[in-house]
Write a protein that binds this DNA or RNA. Structure first.
Length: 214
DNA sequence: CAACCGATCACCT
DNA sequence: GGTGATCGGTTGC
């Protein structure tokens, strides 16, 4: 049994995700991403969401859904509140949450969390030594960036693509402990070429665990 | 410390 | 056969 660190933790319901991803993204900042390891010993991994990006279902050429529904991106067109995990650059996974009612695409990409529980496990998953996470800089490199985040939490496409996030017993879910960011900053999205001018990246202003300062 | 480069998978043309 | 919502190591100021 893992000692609960967070009190009064509420798992976000499916209705939370059934809205415009720009609204969902803003409200996701400050929430807690919880990953439960059920293989072997029970353990919780968690972190506070401090950086996200939005990909729109319409008028956004950078979105995987831009050219319509395919086998790869079908989760985006399915019911809200499910994980869309894809593999990129031959090396990394990225985690997204499907938004909008069924039939409409639109999602939020998780770009960075501030780690809270299970840092030792995350370091091992990332191939980092124990002393590697003794500094704040080291801890930042654990989970800052979409690929690092997935590696730290052991999130793969095979295991999580299409997985529901809104059940209290979901291996991956979002919890609300009541914390709210004081200020949210908007910027352009990172690492894209099409529709790159849209201000669809949202960060907790001043947080040191975001992947890239502007 | 910025700039480049290699890794090498899933998808789409 | 080209490209990408990335990262980490190396190079060279």
């Amino acid at each position: 049994m893992v000692k609960p660190i967070l009190r009064k933790e509420r798992v976000l319901p499916q209705s939370f995700y059934a809205r415009d991803p720009r609204i969902v993204a803003r409200e996701l900042l400050g929430k807690i991403l919880v990953r439960t390891l059920t293989h072997g010993v029970q353990q919780r991994l968690s972190g506070r969401i401090v950086e996200v990006e939005v990909y729109l279902g319409q008028g956004d050429l950078a979105a995987h859904s831009a050219a319509g529904k395919t086998e790869r991106n079908q989760v985006l067109f399915g019911p809200p509140g499910h994980a869309y995990v894809y593999f990129i650059y031959g090396a990394h996974y990225c985690l997204n949450f499907s938004c909008m009612p069924e039939g409409n695409a639109g999602c939020v990409l998780l770009r960075s969390i501030e780690p809270i529980e299970g840092l030792d496990w995350m370091a091992k998953a990332r191939g980092i030594s124990a002393e590697g996470i003794s500094s704040e800089t080291g801890r930042r490199l654990l989970t800052a960036g979409p690929g690092r985040l997935c590696q730290a939490l052991g999130i793969t496409r095979k295991q999580f693509n299409g997985a529901p996030l809104f059940r209290p017993d979901s291996d991956l879910r979002i919890a609300d402990d009541g914390w709210r960011p004081r200020e949210i900053a908007e910027t352009e999205r990172i690492g894209i070429t099409k529709s790159s001018h849209l201000p669809l990246r949202y960060v907790v202003a001043g947080n040191r665990f975001v992947s890239k300062q502007r």
